[in-house]
Design a protein around this nucleic acid. Structure first.
Length: 788
DNA sequence: TAGATGTTAGTTTTT
DNA sequence: CTAACATCTA
């Protein structure tokens, strides 16, 4: 046996494999768990917490467990309460942002925030930035608001305030200036964005010794899920809670940090995630225990072998190999189609067969690299009347009508929230146009006040209209005092005129339905167990509670110390404030019609953490997957490979990979070669449904005569080849005579390989990989390319 | 102020 | 090719 662990004494520890058991029962100290896909990571994490509690090593108040998504946090909590009859309230289990919010609600004064601070989501943040840029006459051509937003969010992810950002160019300086102005605006309005929640919490911990020491003493065990996805700031935040930096050197504290992650599943570098945190963690936290969970309980070995072989092409790895006790299972099926249309058509037929073989549609997933690819697939499924569900897109709290209603509610809470003010000042229309608003903004700027407060300074008809609006809000605020959350929302919906407005709109019925759903959401928020956990701050109560009062062993070490200076701020939030927080931090499931047996469509990113019996990975082409923007540098190509690794490991039983010779993109037909990832998969695990290495010959490879499907295996077998699907108009072969995969010669760059072709006639372009000069796009009307 | 028309970009995304 | 956005005209 690998680990010398005592026989499981507790029923908690039964049925754990040796590595899992070792991880669950690790002694105090810092440790890293490398948890492969499908290796029972969540189980280990929750059992670890349960075991710590049950063996009296820690009280619930001493636990800090951090995840990235609300879903993961909820699942952890649910599993934990199923394992142990404990009061989960004292535990800090939640997302980074949820916990930071909780922390800031408790210490708002020390953090320099109003007690009613509101949270800006990404949309709100963008509109706040646009407003700011207009106000300061920033050229939006040179500084697109989106880019400014990206810059600010990126800086915060790295823990940088404006003065910390290095500037080289004038553009940099301008961006930093905007960052500074944005900060001042947010501060004035009493709002914080997602990054700010993290950064403020971090800075308060860093700058306030009593607060930091309190929480350091309190959280004996810190557990972090998906550690490979942490950004610089999140890692720094953890260090703040679990150690000291002495003369620039980090010294781990005496609490225990358990980081769980998988470097091979790091797919969020583009939003600031830093896999390097894993190696840094091992070094800086002087990790003595590293455990690899490599036993996979999800997939058959053909699938795992494919995943292992693929990911072995990455250089930067901590090293890990998944294994399973299940047999080889079915081969990984590979299909080549002539067009994206045909690819979708084939998939629909295949799915129908799977349904006939008794597979639930909800156990089938179609994964693609980018959202744009879903369209063709949706059309094919729709035409074939196959129920499907697309992940992604607007979530409940992001819908316009919901955001409008929330803006009213937010203004009741915080009158200075100008973003909310502007959203609804003329919605529904009440005769307040751009001119009036401009006047108001000028007045507000002059007085250094919020829009709400500056209304009195605007005269004339505009002023009257504005005053009427503000009066309405103020009256609503009065009227809603003491009402229940449900009553507040109902009253606001009525008096805002939103319902009425949507009633007169053609497409309004859905929106009204959603607004009614908002009342329900609030209702269940109040009654459900969710209330009071994530959103409401009650740290003072918790802190003053002794472990004994939580129904635990009174001999446990007391970890709850009296709180730092502004402890008096621990008053419970109003249900409205809590609900608004909830709305901002948890944009709502986007499970529109959950429960229906529908095929699941989503990007590979969205599929992380999920699993399905049958998985189709589509669009396996150079330029798409790996994405063309990732081809130029090694780092991002490795991330693409990890993405493919994530995609493969979603499948339990059956995996399909498909690629198409042509694909409509941006309204033009592109000619693609199959993905390089095919070359990185083990031939023995694959089964080519279409002849391998079929060159690109549009006319020679038609529809219908494709292949005789000879499925075997667990789903029974079917023999018939497909009925010919409708034949779409076939594109003529391109006139330039080039094909993907061809070797060509260029006068300047020399010999190269054609990777992709797009456009036709004068617009035709070719993407060519020149070994000495890299990958280039060349306009065929200009560049002379001769086939070698 | 609103609807109409033009313009432009177009990976991946949770909080 | 679209969808989202911005600008223009009734």
């Amino acid at each position: 046996m690998l680990f010398d662990t005592p026989a499981p004494a507790s029923p908690l520890l039964q049925n754990l494999n040796p590595e899992q058991l070792a991880a669950v029962t690790l002694p105090a100290g810092n440790a890293l768990i490398l948890a492969g896909a499908g290796s029972g990571k969540t189980r280990v994490l929750t059992t670890r917490i349960a075991w710590l509690l049950q063996t009296g090593q820690v009280s619930p108040g001493g636990i800090l467990a951090v995840t990235f998504t609300n879903k993961a946090a909820k699942e952890m909590l649910a599993r934990l309460t199923a394992m142990l009859p404990i009061n989960a309230r004292g535990m800090w289990i939640g997302t980074f942002h949820g916990l930071c919010n909780r922390f800031l609600r408790a210490h708002w004064k020390l953090a320099g925030l109003p007690s009613t601070f509101q949270i800006l989501d990404t949309q709100d943040q963008l509109s706040a930035i646009k407003r700011l840029m207009k106000q300061f006459n920033v050229d939006e051509e040179r500084f697109p608001a989106k880019q400014t937003q990206w810059f600010i969010a990126g800086a915060k992810e790295d823990g940088l305030r404006p003065r910390d950002v290095e500037t080289r160019t004038d553009d940099d300086r301008k961006k930093v200036e905007l960052y500074q102005l944005y900060e001042e605006q947010c501060q004035r309005e009493g709002v914080v964005d997602f990054g700010e929640l993290m950064l403020r919490s971090y800075e308060l911990l860093r700058d306030n010794d009593p607060v930091r020491e309190h929480y350091q003493r309190r959280f004996r065990h810190i557990l972090i899920d998906e550690f490979q996805d942490t950004n610089r700031l999140q890692y720094a935040w953890i260090k703040m809670l679990a150690g000291q930096t002495v003369e620039g050197r980090f010294v781990p504290g005496d609490n225990s940090v358990l980081a769980v992650g998988d470097d091979d599943q790091s797919i969020y570098a583009f939003r600031g995630a830093r896999v390097g945190n894993m190696a840094d963690f091992v070094r800086e936290f002087e990790v003595t225990h590293q455990i690899k969970l490599e036993q996979n309980y999800r997939s058959y070995s053909n699938i795992l072998d494919s995943a292992n072989a693929l990911i072995s092409h990455n250089k930067k790895r901590l090293g890990k190999n998944l294994r399973t006790d299940q047999g080889p299972g079915e081969p990984v099926r590979v299909y080549e189609s002539t067009s994206d249309f045909a690819e979708a058509q084939w998939m629909v037929e295949e799915m129908r067969q799977l349904v006939r073989d008794g597979i639930d549609r909800k156990e089938m997933a179609v994964l693609y690299r980018s959202n744009a690819q879903s369209r063709v697939i949706e059309t094919a499924l729709f035409n074939a009347a196959v129920p499907y569900r697309v992940y992604g897109g607007l979530r409940f709290f992001e819908r316009a009508e919901i955001k409008h209603a929330l803006a009213y509610l937010r203004l009741l809470e915080n009158k200075d929230d100008d973003t909310s003010f502007l959203r609804i000042v003329n919605f529904p229309p009440r005769g307040i146009g751009a001119r009036s608003i401009e006047q108001l903004q000028d007045a507000a700027r002059a007085a250094g006040r919020s829009l709400h407060d500056a209304v009195a300074a605007v005269g004339g008809k505009a002023g009257a209209n504005l005053s009427a609006f503000v009066a309405k809000i103020d009256v609503l605020r009065e009227q809603t005092q003491g009402l229940s959350l449900r009553e507040i929302i109902e009253l606001v919906l009525q008096h805002s005129g939103l319902i009425e407005h949507y009633r007169s709109e053609r497409e309004g019925a859905d929106r009204i339905e959603n607004l009614e759903e908002l009342v329900n959401a609030a209702e269940s928020f109040v009654t459900q167990e969710g209330f009071g956990r994530d959103a409401v701050a009650m740290p003072v109560d918790e802190l003053r509670q002794s472990p004994a009062s939580q129904g635990l062993d009174p001999n446990l070490p007391i970890t709850d110390e009296p709180l730092a200076p502004d402890a008096e701020t621990g008053e419970t939030m109003s249900p409205l404030a809590a609900f608004l927080t909830h709305a901002a931090l948890e944009s709502g499931d986007n499970q529109a019609q959950a429960g229906q047996d529908a095929v699941q469509l989503m990007t590979v990113h969205a599929a992380k953490g999920l699993e399905f019996d049958c998985v189709f990975i589509t669009g396996m082409e150079e330029g798409l997957f790996p994405h063309e923007n990732s081809l130029s540098d090694h780092e991002s190509l490795e991330e693409e490979r990890r993405l493919m690794y994530v995609a493969i490991t979603r499948a339990r039983q059956r995996l399909y990979l498909s690629h198409s010779q042509t694909r409509m993109l941006h309204g033009q037909t592109r000619y693609n070669v199959k993905s390089r990832f095919f070359e990185e998969l083990p031939e023995t695990a694959l089964k080519w449904l279409t002849p391998k290495n079929q060159g690109f010959t549009p006319s020679a490879f038609g529809y219908g005569g494709g292949y005789a499907s000879t499925r075997g295996g667990s789903y029974g077998s079917s023999k018939e080849s497909f009925a010919s699907p409708p034949v779409p108009p076939q594109k003529a072969a391109p006139s330039h005579g080039l094909r993907s995969g061809m070797q060509v010669f260029h006068n300047k760059f020399g010999e190269g390989t054609v990777l992709a072709l797009e456009g036709s006639g004068d617009d035709a372009r070719a993407q060519v990989n020149f070994p000495r000069h890299g990958i280039k796009w060349l306009a065929l009307s200009v560049a002379k390319l001769t086939p070698v």
